[in-house]
Structures are given as C-alpha cells and as structure tokens.
Write a protein that binds this DNA or RNA. Structure first.
Length: 349
DNA sequence: GAGCATCCGGCTGATGACGT
DNA sequence: ACGTCATCAGCCGGATGCTC
C-alpha cells in the first residue's frame, strides 16, 4: 500500500490558501461532505492558480481525499475518550499490537522448576508444573507454547498438569493454556506440539526474520484470530522510523496454505534464530571497532546502542547494512519445533 | 555557543476494506 | 456509488546529544 508520488516527483501538498479555502467550505457544510461539483470546481480552481498552473494539476480525488481525511480527523479529535479499553471478545485471541501472548511473568515460576532445565520429554509427573521454567544454565526463563488439537493454533503454556506415556506413540502432557480455564485443558503430544515459546519481535529484530523461516504468525480471520505456524516466503525491507519496523513479510500459513503479507508485529520468531541477532551484534561491534581504528573520531554507528541496529543508519534496511549477516544467516526451515524447543536451554541458541 | 546529526512526534495525502 | 474508518508511508519541525 505504498504511497509514493505517482509521478515520481515531490509529494503533493496543498498550500495554505487552498487549505484555508477548503476549511471554510467544510465549515459552511457543517463538516459534511460537499457535493461533487464543488470538489471538481475546487480542483479546477487550484489547478488554474498562479502557483500551480502549468506545473501541477490538482485532481478531484485529491480534493476528495483531503475532505475525507479532515472530516475523519475532526471527528477523531472530538471523540477522543481517554482510558477506553479495547477488549477483545474472541476466545484465546490476543492483540498482537502489544506483543503480549499471555506471557507469564518470572514471578509465576514455581518453587522447583530448575530440575526440568528445558528437558520436557523426561519430565516427571509432578502436577501443575509451571509453563515457565528457569533455565539451569543461567538466570533466563524458559517459556513454552503448545499446539491445540482443537483449532491447530499455538498458545502459551501456563502449566504442565500431568504427563503420560502411551504404549504406542509419543508421550503426552496435560497442558493448561495461559489465560484459559480448566475446561480448555488438553493432552498434547510433547514431541510434536510442545516447544519453547516463540518470541515477539522488537523492531530492531526484523533482521532475524528471513525468507524460509518458520515463524508463529497472527492470523486474523472473520471469526477468530490466532497464532499459527507459517513459513516466510519473502521479506520486503523498508525504512524504519519512529514507529519502528515497517518491513513487510509474505508468509504462508502451514495449516491452510494461505498466504498473507504481514507486518513484523504479527510475527513471532523462533528462539533458534537468536544466533542471527548475536551475529549482527558482533558484526556491529567489529564495524564500530574497525571504524575507530581507521577514524579516531567517533561516529554515529559507534555511538548507537547495538540493540538498535537500524537506528544507526535509519534510512537503510537493516539487512542491507551488513552483508555478512544475510550471507551467513541460515534459514530455519529445518527447525524441529518439539525436540528443539523442549530441549534447548534458553540462551544457548 | 555554534554547527551538525539523529531522534521523535505529529501532520498529511493516499489507499483499501467494509458497510449502507 | 458513496461514505466511513483504519492504516500506510513520506515529510517536516522541534528536541536532544555530541563535537569542536
């Protein structure tokens, strides 16, 4: 949905007299949409003005757009009611904008989780084991997600309630989904449908999402909005700005093979891609160090925190700044969610 | 303090989805 | 067909931090 100037020139902008006149007309109409003939007359008039004649033709559509936007803006300003909660009524649906997927806080960790150390398949049948576990190797926490057999979507695990070993097939765990009640508990195949929790992407982490990756993607349907597995088919890198990452990712959902272009905020990357960020950080360090050797005077790249790789060169897509990153990065198509996720301690990626 | 680069927030034009 | 709304993306100006 790009909006570059269609003629390649500078972005169109109404000048002050034009805006003043349109505002006056809007007031005359009590903020209602003026008739088409009025808008056309305005377009003709503006096109014939001294400033525009022979240079720019003001289109009817541009006038119409202005009135639409101005009316919408006026209304939005008037309706601004503070503190209005946006509560979704959709079951298990989570707003991707705030990047929260019923994440348990570390405080929720139980008294003896460390023995698990991310080795789920060997877990003992201790009832109500928290779905968040402290890694044995460091102070980070492991969080798990599980794939529901009811809708095929992935949910954060609040607690592992029990486990059983079937005579045939893989072991299963009884899972309490975060934010759901007992009636939603499910028995889930540990190897196939339980894994380390996918990670919401911060703006600077879009570089870790590459074509071919397995990701968890927020799919919004008519009557449900859930997280499903998806493969990244293509990544369209765009400039970052104050709002963060504006890259777009073409994904194909694994459950229905549908394709969609989504922003970063709808994507959760697999923890296995952490190494890419580490590579980026070390590459940025090398870059900063080499720059310091060549040019003692500090520059922006050296000053910028590594956690914001895009901020140092805001006008360039992050992956383009460091060719070594894309060259060395390996697509995660071979990720085996269950085994990997359940056995790899957090931070060891 | 001047000059510069960058960050940050807001404004604005454009477009698509959806409802009537 | 038209109106409403949400969102995208470019641009601009003020704030901030750094160097000289």
């Amino acid at each position: 949905m790009g909006r570059p100037p269609s003629n390649g020139g500078p972005a169109f902008r109404f000048n002050l007299p034009e805006v003043t006149e349109m505002e006056a007309i809007l007031l005359q109409h009590n903020t209602a949409m003026p008739g088409r003939h009025i808008l056309e007359a305005l377009a003709d008039k503006f096109s014939e003005s001294v400033e525009r004649k022979g240079k720019v033709v003001v289109q009817f559509k541009q006038i119409w757009n202005w009135f639409q936007n101005r009316r919408y803006a006026l209304r939005a300003r008037g309706n601004k009611a503070p503190g209005k909660l946006n509560v979704s009524s959709m079951p298990r649906a989570v707003d991707p904008a705030n990047q929260m997927r019923n994440v348990l806080q570390p405080l929720a960790v139980g008294p003896k989780p460390t023995h698990m150390s991310g080795n789920l398949p060997s877990m003992t049948p201790v009832p109500s084991v928290p779905g968040v576990m402290r890694s044995g190797s460091d102070n980070s926490y492991l969080e798990f997600e599980a794939k529901s057999g009811r809708d095929g979507a992935w949910y954060d695990v609040q607690a592992f309630l029990a486990h059983r070993n079937l005579e045939i097939g893989d072991p299963e765990v009884q899972v309490r989904f975060a934010g759901f009640e007992v009636e939603e508990d499910e028995w889930i195949n540990v190897k196939k449908h339980v894994r380390q929790r996918s990670l919401p992407c911060e703006a600077s982490e879009c570089v870790a999402v590459l074509a071919g990756d397995l990701v968890l993607c927020f799919q919004e349907g008519k009557d449900q909005a859930l997280y499903f597995d998806a493969i990244v088919l293509d990544a369209q890198r765009r400039r970052h700005d104050v709002r963060g990452c504006r890259c777009r990712f073409l994904v194909r959902y694994s459950h229905d093979q549908s394709e969609e272009i989504v922003p970063l905020r709808k994507i959760c990357r697999r923890p296995e891609t952490d190494y890419r960020l580490q590579q980026l950080h070390s590459a940025a360090n090398d870059f900063a160090n080499s720059n310091q050797l060549q040019k003692p005077a500090p520059d922006a790249a050296a000053k910028t925190p590594l956690s914001q790789p895009s901020a140092s060169v805001p006008n360039v897509a992050p992956e383009l700044k460091d060719p070594s990153l894309s060259a060395s990065a390996t697509p995660a198509t071979s990720v085996q969610p269950s085994s990997n996720a359940a056995t790899v301690p957090a931070g060891s990626a």
